[in-house]
Structures are given as structure tokens and as C-alpha cells.
Amino acid sequence: MLMELLFWITMSILCVITYFIVHKPLYIVERLFLILFLEFFITSYFAVISVNLEQIYIEKQMVPTIMFLCFELILLPVLFLFFIDLFNSTSLIKRLLIFGLSILVCLGMEWLLLIQDVIVHVNWGLWQSMLGYVTMLVVTIIIHYMFKAILIDEGVVTK
């Protein structure tokens, strides 16, 4: 299990480093807003799914929990942020491609957690997770547009 843990920690670090290195079209205030919102939204989503609905069981030992936290607190928010950044800088067809790719990457990570026995799906399928990620991404994009409208109104960013 330690090798898997190392894999998730390495992935998280690489993801954060890549995000900081790559050129980002969004203004830092927007990115701050997005990362705060995503952390809140993603942790709430998984709390509802795993604690309230009991559809996803997360292993209650230390190592699997840390692996899941890497996914939930670092990888997923940073990936979403990365995709929203790209989403804002390209044409419509590329946007759709980026959207689809982002959902696939999220699903791929969840599938990895499944085969590593970090999480167990109880009456839950990957297609439901896909719907969850699509909803999260769409809601985040809408909330971002609303916040951006305020920033444009205040003259903090330009169109």
C-alpha cells in the first residue's frame, strides 16, 4: 500500500508544480476564488456521497485515507482549476474537448482508487461519478462566470 501512497503523493506534487509552471490566462483573484470554491464544493460532494448516502465507502485506515485526501483535496481541485483555466482560453470545439478530457481524467483517477481498494462503490457506478463530475464542473464554470462579472463590473479584470 505504501507504493500506492507514494504514487498519489507524487502525482499531487507534480500536478501542483505543473499548475504553477504553466501559463494561466485567469487573473490570480479568479484563481483564488476558484480554488476556495472547489475545495468547499468537492469536500461537500464527497461527504454527501460517502457519509450521508453511503454510496461510496472510503477505507478508514490511515494510508488509504491519505491517498483519498490527495485525490480529493489536491488533485481534483487543481485539475478542475487547470481545466477551467484552459476552458477560458480556447474556441468552442476545443472547450468541449477539454471538458470531455477533464471528466475522463477525473474518472480515471477514481477508477485507480477503486482498483487500489481505497474506495468501494456501494450501489454506485462510474457513470454516476461521471454525472457528479459533469455537474461539479458545470456549476463551477457558472459560479466562476458570476464572480467574473462582479470583477469586470468593479474594473478588477477586463473582458
Binding site: V29, F33, L36
Partner: peptide, 14 residues
Amino acid sequence: SLSFSVLVFLFATT
């Protein structure tokens, strides 16, 4: 400003 306040609120909430 409104956006500044939103960020402070969101920071504490998160």
C-alpha cells in the same frame, strides 16, 4: 468591494 468581501467570506467558510 463586493468581490473582496466574497473572497474573505469564502476563505473563512472553506
